[in-house]
Design a protein around this nucleic acid. Structure first.
Lengths: 417, 417
DNA sequence: GGGACTTTATAAAGCCCCTTTCCTAACCCC
DNA sequence: GGGGTTAGGAAAGGGGCTTTATAAAGTCCC
């Protein structure tokens, strides 16, 4: 057989996700509202809510006022019913956040990594320390940590928990989860930041309750997470979404991937800095060794109508829009989300320019269907997405039958005669 | 709710497709083989085979020799159990093919359209004439025609049967199926050639039994059909796959879509001709008014090691490969199929060059997973795909309960107290 | 030629989903 | 406190798939 075997169980899992998503999004809510929002029958919603109650993921929190008639029972996320941890391993830092079940950040730990620290053991050490730290800070008991999602750049084998290739450290087939498991006792889940951001948007962001979505990630690196058909599109070897190395300019700038003119070299933070330097080598906006400071300065510059800043952002938006228009034509998504720190920092001015430029490039019909937005997620989307992987893991590992409290009542009748 | 609601019925439909696909692919086959090939249980396969037998789509054709044990019953496509018609409406011609249920071509009719003939009524007239012709030629009774699939270029609303936008004739919102229904009494299905080719590959070609596939269409126009997650990816407004207008060269050749440097202007037949003319304006390969003749001549030229032809094909392959590499990185498919007449005509030499050039551009991991092949479909893939839409339509409209042909033979034993 | 063994195909039963229907519970208002 | 109204749960029903049992149809061998 070819593609994954679909079974009725997948429907159940998807519905369970959907209901929980809805509850998290709108926290005191009633079964009626859930049924309306998900399109499921009241009975199904009731059983799913029952499951989630049994798992202590949600609790009953009173009743709605009624104007004649039995009042609706309200359920809400049981914020103290568990904790989820998201780990964002990046090139220069490790960030770990601990969330309650409403996905509020309860604790955060950042560890900087010096340029030399590229051995897996060193990275694992930082992660373990930070995870220990957030658990202590938040004061949760270990037993309540439902899982730890880990995001590591590059190519990932999620089932095996292996970082197959991490370009920044030249890792090859590092069994990251096994190494982490020696220090961390909670269930571990591995994936990469592109997919973490995408799943964060799917659960809590601009893709929630919408159709096909492209999550465009603008950070130091660039990539796209694809939410197609209601779920993450992973491709056949879990490496879909490598959009950063799409050729944008034939024979353009040299990229570290070896090709020329990749999207990433124009709209990634280093590419933006390069453009700024080319335009105005002496610009006060430029902080040569600090991407974050430079992008921050650019954003302020745009607000102050600094012509250089405006031009840099506009040019960046045009490059970006050329790429996004191609995505819109190819995939015909309902939503395109601009995510990650560069997008968050440059914000509305970037968005406006991108919208205009995409409108000039894309075909009419797919364009009409596509809405381009900034990510509405206020915190670090990678940590949030990583934690979401842990949440999904915890939810999908419910398979034990409800235990059917059958006393041993001579179940199988003896053969009569 | 957002994306399509999935129900257990969809599973059944998918399984029915899968079983029939398998039977068509390997025609006398047994239930055992089907179960092994599809991963379904024997019982499920048996019921599905029963359904297909009831529908007269397949028949029992004897038994396998056995070496001890009951021999396996063999089933095969019931070629004479029905006919399917595929209609390929293109810019300059209408081609109609009539297929038996094994998807062999039984009859074909081509109608040329003069440049002036762009009114929907004129096109509909040609289609109706050609459909009538193939039915007569093949000598099938009308009642045995299960459906007619129609492919029309551009943007299509398949539910409504409307051609929302056809660039070559500047059609807007033409209710094509309604117009056709006045002349054609069979069930009608509408879509566009990109998706027709993709679905042809999914059922009968390189995507059968494989994972995610990109079908790259090289004809006068260029586009991509996406087979993701075991089914056609349509996007949110059924216009996914518009890959021909992806920007390949910033500020490159002007495209009729209004942009510059679209893939289509380089690897579509007119683009290839333009390149040939630029390289060698007096080339004997060039047939200024005839795309087909020129591409044929190019193919022969490559076989004869004509340096101009070789260079044109190599350059075309490089442009094409740059685009394909981006698709491979973005979608991480298992298969990339080169389809349509330009790909079929240029054949192996093009494929070889494309493979090499993609290998230079794509990232290692997605590249390793992707196999690039020529379409193995020997006939017109658009007609075949269109007919496949009709087949899918006929199959999915089975909802009537099997009627339980219980002769009153007291089958159910009376309760023996 | 008839048992023994093997293999296939169908029937029955069980489990998992989801939905519809019915009924009780809970609340408002008069 | 009763009538009207709405919520929520239990039961029944329908569709799907699988496992297990049984019937059917062969081969092989004595």
């Amino acid at each position: 057989m070819s593609s994954v075997k679909r079974t009725s169980r997948d429907i159940r899992t998807a519905n369970r996700y959907e209901v929980l998503r809805q509850i998290i999004a709108e926290s005191p809510t009633s079964r009626q509202e859930l049924a309306a929002a998900t399109g499921l029958s009241l009975a199904t919603v009731a059983t799913l809510v029952g499951e989630l109650l049994d798992l202590r993921l949600i609790t009953e929190v009173g009743f709605e006022d009624s104007a004649g008639g039995r009042p609706r029972g309200l359920v809400a996320v049981n914020t103290s019913g568990g904790a989820l941890i998201g780990v964002d391993i990046a090139e220069t830092y490790v960030r770990v956040e601990l969330f309650d079940l409403a996905l509020n950040v309860l604790a955060r730990a950042d560890e900087d990594m010096r340029p030399g620290e590229s051995r897996p053991e060193q990275v694992v050490g930082h992660v373990a320390a930070a995870v220990g730290s957030v658990v202590t800070q938040a004061g949760v008991e270990g037993a309540r940590v439902l899982g730890v999602g880990v995001s590591v750049p590059g190519q990932v084998d999620r089932e095996g928990g292996v970082s197959e290739y991490a370009p920044n450290w030249d890792w090859h087939d590092v069994p990251l989860l096994d190494l982490l498991a020696e220090h961390i006792a909670y269930p571990l889940y591995l994936d990469n930041p592109l997919r973490a951001c995408a799943v964060a948007e799917l659960w809590f962001g601009a893709a929630r309750g919408r159709g096909d979505t492209v999550v465009v990630n603008l950070g130091t690196g660039v990539g796209a997470g694809l939410v197609l058909g209601g779920g993450l599109h992973r491709g056949v070897s879990n490496s879909a979404g490598e959009w950063g190395h799409t050729t944008l300019v034939l024979d353009g700038r040299l990229c570290h991937c070896g090709n020329h003119g990749c999207v990433e070299t124009y709209v990634g933070a280093p590419g933006i800095m390069l453009h700024l330097r080319e335009l105005s080598p002496q610009s006060t906006l430029l902080h040569p060794e600090d991407q974050t400071a430079t992008i921050d300065a650019l954003a302020r510059g745009v607000a102050d109508r600094d012509p250089v800043a405006v031009k840099v952002v506009r040019d960046t938006a045009r490059y970006l829009a050329a790429g996004i228009a191609d995505l819109v034509n190819l995939l015909n998504p309902e939503v395109v989300v601009l995510s990650s720190w560069v997008a968050a920092t440059l914000g509305e001015p970037l968005l406006t320019e991108v919208r205009e430029a995409v409108a000039r490039h894309a075909l009419r019909r797919p364009l009409a269907a596509a809405e381009i937005v900034l990510s509405p997620i206020p915190t670090d989307p990678v940590c949030l997405g990583a934690a979401t992987f842990a949440l999904e893991g915890a939810l999908s590992s419910i398979s034990q039958r409800p235990a059917k409290r059958t006393a041993p009542t001579r179940s199988r009748t003896a053969p009569l005669s």
